[in-house]
Design a protein around this nucleic acid. Structure first.
Lengths: 251, 251
DNA sequence: CCGATTTTGTTCTCACGTTCACAAGCTCCT
DNA sequence: AGGAGCTTGTGAACGTGAGAACAAAATCGG
């Protein structure tokens, strides 16, 4: 996707630009760990302490932090407040980001009520749904508005992040509308693969996929003997002749 | 972690055992794509078709499927029903798994109502909460039960998967109780790093982390010039002397 | 029956991520 | 002031994953 900016071997000095994706995904975890330490009144922490709090290995943590710069003092550790600020700044949560949530079903409700939105840095500016019976409903201190107002809201509040909590069906259309309106980052909870143009980031959260991954490992654990060795379907001899629509299988 | 069973170069025949983790994470996506194709009455699909539907590259998809075995016919493609069954079996969703949900707040409600639980293969056997005012509440066709009944339920229904949707505070304790009761796979929605003994699998879903990752990329997009170059905190000259508890920073 | 065509399964190479191990650098004690 | 003791930051080795490219196998038309 991204053209991978040409790597000059000779000049890796400073933060350059471009922290490895795996590291970016861990920075929020470190940020949370630092906040917890800070709340406990701890002023300084070693990479070992932090790594334990974040659930990672200390070498990895040090390398991750080294991409941001050389905060930290040898022989001492990291100043909790200082490092916390640096990470927050690097991630971009020192400013706050306007977010819209589209699709106010069960999950949309839950997210709308999610106080403080987990960590600060994000502000829900609108709850949207196309269903007339939902529009006008109060949730916390917000009111559900019509999805038709999307463009107006995005423009007025400089919304750059959209959260899709609709069913699978309308998700792609909602996504297209969000992108057209100017949203450039999308968090998708609908169980579909959304396609977006280059320049738009998308992340997916999928409960059923997570459960299936767990099930795979669970199956391996409880009796590897219980795994049937390639039990061919009853009739797959000659031609695969349109069993199609009726789900005679498992699911 | 896994000792990586010695690879004999000459005999990679059959499913051996041990599919790469990255592949395991994509199998559920393929499964969903196949189900969609099946529902559209499509009986055969090429790796290209499937890859498009699943949002991946076709070479990757073929390699992933090759770990399961040699389903698929050269010059033709894959039989949709057949492949679907093979993947479902490999993941383990041909049998169904008993699941308990602990913590019936907003999110717990949402999951409890999540009809069909996304894909079949999972059966919610209990909704649990420790708060007396929630116990007894009806949600769909289920009733919230007391968390104290956990052990009994896990034993009776052979529950191997637990979902934690409590706040951060009680999450570790709930986790410990689940593990002690015999649950060996946990899906955690609480914003904390849980620690579990070896042999227990844990996966985490974290809204605020996902948003922060989006924010990072968003910040890079909108004006790389807008990124302030290392604006040191006002007073970090000499010694890091306990600024600790008061959060003078941003978050 | 044979060759052209299609599409899988696999090999090879490269990039990315993780972990180890250690030199550089800071503090504290004597 | 100097050395002992920690802890960071990073270079190097290792393992995993992604993608290109191609040989093997199946169908289909002549």
């Amino acid at each position: 996707m991204t053209p991978a900016r040409s790597r000059r071997p000779g000049a890796p000095t400073r933060t350059e630009r471009g922290i490895p994706e795996a590291t970016v995904a861990r920075l929020p975890v470190y940020l949370r760990a630092l906040t917890a330490l800070s709340d406990s009144g701890i002023a300084t922490a070693s990479s070992e302490d932090l790594a334990t709090a974040a659930g990672v290995n200390s070498a990895k943590l040090r390398k991750d932090l080294s991409y941001l710069g050389s905060y930290g003092t040898r022989g001492v550790g990291y100043d909790v407040e200082y490092l916390r600020y640096q990470i927050a700044r690097e991630i971009g949560v020192t400013q706050d980001w306007a977010v819209v949530i589209v699709g106010i079903g069960n999950l949309g409700h839950a997210l709308a009520n999610y106080s403080g939105f987990g960590t600060r840095g994000f502000r829900i500016v609108a709850l949207l749904d196309a269903a007339p019976e939902l529009v006008g409903e109060r949730i916390g201190d917000m009111v559900v508005r019509d999805f038709a107002e999307l463009e107006e809201i995005v423009a007025a509040d400089r919304v750059s992040i959209g959260v899709i909590t609709t069913p699978a069906g309308p998700a792609q259309e909602v996504c297209d509308r969000l992108v057209a309106a100017g949203v450039t980052s999308i968090l998708n909870f609908a169980p579909v693969v959304l396609s977006v143009p280059d320049g738009v980031d998308i992340r997916k959260v999928d409960l059923s996929i997570e459960l299936q991954i767990l099930a795979y490992h669970e199956q391996r654990k409880s009796g590897e003997a219980a795994l049937p060795e390639v039990p061919e379907l009853p009739a797959i001899n000659g031609l695969p002749d349109l069993p199609s629509v009726n789900g005679g299988v498992g699911a």
